[in-house]
Design a protein around this nucleic acid. Structure first.
Lengths: 334, 334
DNA sequence: TTGAAAGCGTTACCAT
DNA sequence: ATGGTAACGCTTTCAA
């Protein structure tokens, strides 16, 4: 059995109240007694039981973090943001990964609630109605984070994807590309890919020498980009640049080209969105839109902690800046 | 204020003991009362407070997981293993990342202990004496996981790196390579790179037409591989294959070659160790030793849970199988 | 400045 | 089968 506050109190010859006061500095304690208690604590190796503390104070210093998959690099970066900033405020992270299992998402919402977490951050591709209701029901601070869906009814942290796509398309135009294809995802509702499409269209429209070329991949992963690349090439042999709605798609496209002796960027330029870690590891280094994943996580938990402290909290959506990273997968056309 | 067991008891007109019995199925309750209680629970939306439960049962169903960096792909995979298997046994994961801060490691050991976690898994590059002592002091199940250091005094899960290196070297030999270089890390104590070096040497020695060529990188990351690649080439222009002690090093080497117009595998073969996710995404796809990171995490937590249940637990070290993944960064010599 | 005691939300033991 | 109550380890209020 571990050492408790009682053991300390007894050995120090004081009441447990006094011991509590010295460890919490909650009320004045005379120097001698304080010293004595500290000595005993040290001697016994006493460590307060946080569970017992939480029970009375209602503060668990725990933030629930539900994610789809921690091995997804952009999620890992967000998690890092959450964790590092959380730790600065003494908050710890209870991690739950769903790996795409919708039922698990709900299960973890309840579980985290029972574990008395003080706030929940959900990183997933979609914010379902069921979850929204649960959020209302348990009424603890909540932030939703997604790279694929926008959500205006619940607090989130994001970048302006429309502007980003617009800028990226313009960058490609400035490079002299005429036939620029956009590769997005089959549009679910509220998909960010749709939003980016708008930005792309806007840029294309402002430039009457160009016309829209749109492709949709069947998913968001490398393999989906790989699979759709052939089609793009077959149908539009005069495409000189492809703007993909995320890095994974772009990497898939580039890999397909590599495997078929098409050189990037010599033969064709490819860009992505995200700037996940490998984007700058791959050769050619990927030109892409930098999404500040770490900051997104950091700001999300910051918002929760603010709310917990009763501080005034930002309007629902927090928009962070992005940046066009110009690297080696794009080339100026003569 | 949330609904408590008392509220349920009162509304159902029974004692809290009875309510406790129905939610825990710990003792028989008459069907009618049971039904009534269930109804009230549903009506009130009652959810047991796990903190209170933990306080009395001493079971937090929490496993502490201390890692260096979650955005490190191999760690992310281990974490996934830990989490998924943990969840199967109702255990949740409390995540703490140190990002290389040694002091943080110790801080989290204590923190997790105070938070009443039932076991701790530490994934880091080194198991320091200070931590070892703490492990003894808090006496809860503990497993140490590392990809760089071997540790025989504390339970760990690993592969046989010596055998793996031996096999990989032999594979290179079978491909007809004569001058095979080994690229490892500056050997700290108990480094796995040293162990792999032994495997490499063993294979080379068994083959008298070959001699050892050994290089040491200044670190374990891509950049370190990149930086040392030039040196390898300058000093040994007749090297036709490089066996790197981890994938990151191999990727750095390949990137350096790419940037300097040396073709892999046409001009030189490169292999790694780990089989981190990007190893098969990169072009050329990396020939490497597959370390079962997911399984390592899974087995680690399984061991802890076994120990918690008082089941007989494996001898300290658990050795998992590896596999040589033959891909495109190696080529047969004529 | 200190101590006694109530209370946090449960489980589990002891009665009945 | 059910209820009453001590106990888990702590914080906090109330008295002294």
């Amino acid at each position: 059995m571990a050492v408790t506050i009682k053991d300390v109190a007894k050995k120090a010859g004081v009441s447990i109240s006094t011991v509590s006061r010295v460890i919490n500095k909650s009320k004045p304690v005379s120097p001698e007694i304080r010293k004595k208690v500290l000595e005993v604590i040290d001697e016994l190796g006493y460590r307060p039981n946080e569970i017992a503390r939480t029970l009375v104070t209602k503060k668990s210093y725990l933030i629930g973090l539900i994610v789809t998959d921690i091995s997804n690099p952009y999620i890992a970066e967000m998690v890092r943001g959450v964790e590092e900033i959380g730790k600065m405020y003494n908050y710890d992270v209870l991690l739950c990964s769903t790996y795409g299992d919708k039922a698990a998402e709900m299960k973890y919402m309840q579980l985290l609630n029972r574990k008395q977490v003080e706030g929940i951050i959900l990183i997933s591709d979609e914010l379902r109605g069921e979850i929204k209701e649960k959020v209302k029901e348990i009424k603890i601070p909540f932030v939703y984070l997604s790279r694929y869906t926008y959500e205006k009814d619940y607090p989130t942290v994001t970048i302006n994807y429309l502007d980003a796509a617009y800028e990226m398309t313009n960058y490609l135009i400035s490079l002299g590309h005429k036939n620029i294809a956009y590769l997005g995802n089959k549009g679910e509702e509220n998909s960010l890919s749709e939003l980016m499409l708008k930005g792309y269209k806007k840029a294309i429209k402002e430039n009457d020498k160009r016309s829209e070329i749109i492709y949709l991949a069947k998913g968001k992963k490398i393999e989906h980009g790989y699979n759709v690349a052939k089609e793009i090439l077959d149908k539009n042999s005069d495409v000189t640049a492809i703007f993909c709605s995320n890095d994974e798609l772009a990497i898939g496209v580039i890999n397909y080209f590599h495997d078929n002796n098409i050189k990037v960027p010599e033969d064709i330029s490819v860009t992505g969105c995200g700037d996940i870690k490998i984007a700058s590891i791959l050769r050619p280094k990927l030109t892409t839109i930098r999404e500040p994943f770490y900051d997104i996580g950091a700001v999300a938990i910051r918002r929760i902690i603010k709310e917990l402290k009763g501080e005034k909290v930002e309007e629902k959506d927090i928009i962070l800046p992005f940046k066009i990273e110009k690297r080696d997968s794009t080339k100026k056309l003569k």
